[in-house]
Design a binder for these strands. Structure first.
Lengths: 359, 359
DNA sequence: TTCAATTTGTTCGTATGTATC
DNA sequence: GGATACATACGAACAAATTGA
């Protein structure tokens, strides 16, 4: 269990790293902190002593306790000169290993080191990762945002990087509230191409399964809608099934019931290959086959698209290439050479999960 | 005027420097010093805290306060940096993402950072990685050895870590020339269990495909041989097919010719699931089916074992758990608490790629 | 310049928790 | 298990430096 003074020290450290306590300014006096945290002055002093030792604070008798930044230029962390931080949601799943591989490869070729952390798509863990990167003094940061379509409580940390002149680039998605450069796939187009392909194969009533806690899901839905508009077709909002990281496990249960009632639907656009393969299994459990009974289309061209019993029609994703692009971007940015956003265009990859329908 | 605790600290420091308090020995406990100097315990603790900070003393809870000599090598690598280097052969392939995930998870939970690099199983790249880790000043290193069964030209670097007091632990394999602690799977047993299972299912003539540039392949072969000895059966050395990282691509070509000539062989033990799935595809191209024509057994229980058309009978691998164990080991080692090697025992996982033969 | 308020520094006392031998 | 030794936490008092009225 953490001791009181450690907890208080952690909180103060967080406030420093998120720029709530600004470098060079005083923090509240001991008496105030004592009241704030409901502890004795001794305990507050222990916490402060810890942070002074770490180089986050500096005390001046009679005046106050000031925020210091000497922790950055101590031989403590890694030699910050050529270290790039990488924060992703997941490490071992899906296409993430490929992206990380692309980043690592490129960085090491150029003599940079890679400091890695993952958030498991949880904002509290994201905060911990950001604090880690700030204390380690990385010279650049590549981030895949956590829950990019929800309000993010860690924006202060990102601003903190900006104020310290540490470049940040986002991959796969970005926080719309924040003007941070990004390297993404054109997800609207991906959703559009998937939907259009099903229309072209003669499907008239489509469903969509999409994730709505991240921006990719939102944009893929946007493409789904755009294709409908272009076809001058209306779609039934009931046929849009949404889920989040937390409800992922239950999505197929609710879907089975609903799909049984919607007899018209013949084509289903999926958020990604993982969902598409899950859907195919769920359909199989209902006695429905792909592509005979339903046409299904995935996204990301992951190993899952060719791993299951049905080879998925899907959309391409740059993976390694995206990782390499992010690495190159950040290395340029560290040398003060800023470049613009980069957007990869997805392409349709036709395999076996879509059937042509003729009326 | 000097404060009381400064005076006391000065006296204790003098006693250390004049060898009255000998390096490595305990100094009198707080209660005693309190009486000696006629002050409160708190004052004694202030004095001791000062000296601990200067590196003259080291406190051990429940035991005592010891004289330390770390003040002599200050500014050196003794710093409390909390960065662990991780070097693996591959990042995005096979079971490696899971292992890395296990390491990352555990390290971050405990406030450590992870510096990542990969060698692509190439010793030159391994050297670059090791140099990077040394210059970054990591406080511990987790390594999956590159070509562990071949002479390694980078042993000097590993010795360099040892000299600097930076703990190193190897995972999956180790360099036999080097006495470095390791966390591995019992690969001999894995090979043995696989072979034994085929015997038990009635197969009498077995082949082995194994990788011989790493130790795992060597040990898995050892298990293969051990099972034969136990069965008092001879095996034909012609039926042992070996490959290396560089010849991996061609292994199935040579195998197809040879297997066509060896009519007796009905069961094949594979180095891992990747090879097993490749074999199944190569056999399919010859018009042979698994398990009807050949029984095949994989290793590592990777996602590949259930991804293909045939679900593989294989052997378990701890993956995440191994990563976590490595992380825990290195964190203990950084705190000078050394523990021994750890060996995970594999278990047989029966799926569909082995057929029972009756004569 | 002085003075009072504020803030950190030093020192005492006491009680309880927890690791080690 | 019990004694020892360090760890955490509370409370109180006065000292010393700074700040701003």
């Amino acid at each position: 269990m953490k001791t009181k003074y450690q907890v208080i020290a952690d909180e103060i450290r967080s406030k420093i790293l998120s720029n709530e306590f600004v470098v060079g300014k005083v923090i509240p006096p001991e008496l105030q902190l004592q009241k704030d945290y409901g502890v004795s002055r001794h305990t507050v002093r222990e916490a402060i002593a810890l942070l002074v030792n770490e180089g986050f604070l500096r005390k001046e008798k009679g005046s106050g306790t000031y925020v210091d930044d000497s922790y950055q230029r101590r031989g403590d962390g890694v030699s910050s000169s050529k270290t790039i931080g990488v924060i992703t949601t997941y490490l071992s799943d899906y296409i993430f290993p490929s992206i990380i591989r692309g980043i690592e490869q490129k960085l090491r070729e150029n003599g940079y080191s890679l400091l890695l952390a993952s958030t498991n798509n949880d904002v509290d863990q994201e905060r911990a990762c950001l604090e880690q990167m700030l204390s380690q003094g990385v010279s650049g940061l590549i981030v895949e945002p956590t829950k990019s379509n929800q309000y993010n409580p860690n924006l202060a940390y990102y601003l903190s990087f900006k104020e310290r002149g540490i470049p940040v680039v986002m991959i796969n998605a970005y926080y719309e509230e924040l003007s941070v450069p990004f390297i993404c796939v054109n997800d609207t187009k991906a959703g559009y191409l998937a939907t259009k392909h099903l229309f072209e194969q003669g499907h008239q009533h489509l469903a969509l399964i999409t994730k709505i806690d991240d921006l990719q899901g939102k944009y893929r839905m946007k493409g789904f809608i755009k294709a409908h508009e272009e076809m001058r077709t209306n779609f039934d909002p009931k046929n849009v099934y949404t889920y989040t990281t937390e409800t992922k496990a239950q999505v197929f249960e609710t879907l089975r019931e609903k799909l049984a009632r919607e007899q018209e639907v013949t084509g289903i656009v999926c958020y990604n290959d993982e969902v598409a393969q899950g859907l195919i299994q769920a359909l199989a459990a209902m006695g429905k086959r792909v592509p005979e009974d339903y046409s299904v289309i995935g996204n990301d061209d992951s190993f899952l698209s060719t791993a299951g019993s049905v080879k998925l029609t899907t959309l391409s994703h740059p993976k390694e290439e995206l990782g390499e692009a992010a690495a190159e971007w950040i290395m340029l940015a560290v040398q003060q050479e800023m470049t613009g956003n980069k957007i990869f265009e997805p392409e349709l990859i036709i395999r076996d999960s879509v059937k042509r329908i003729t009326n």
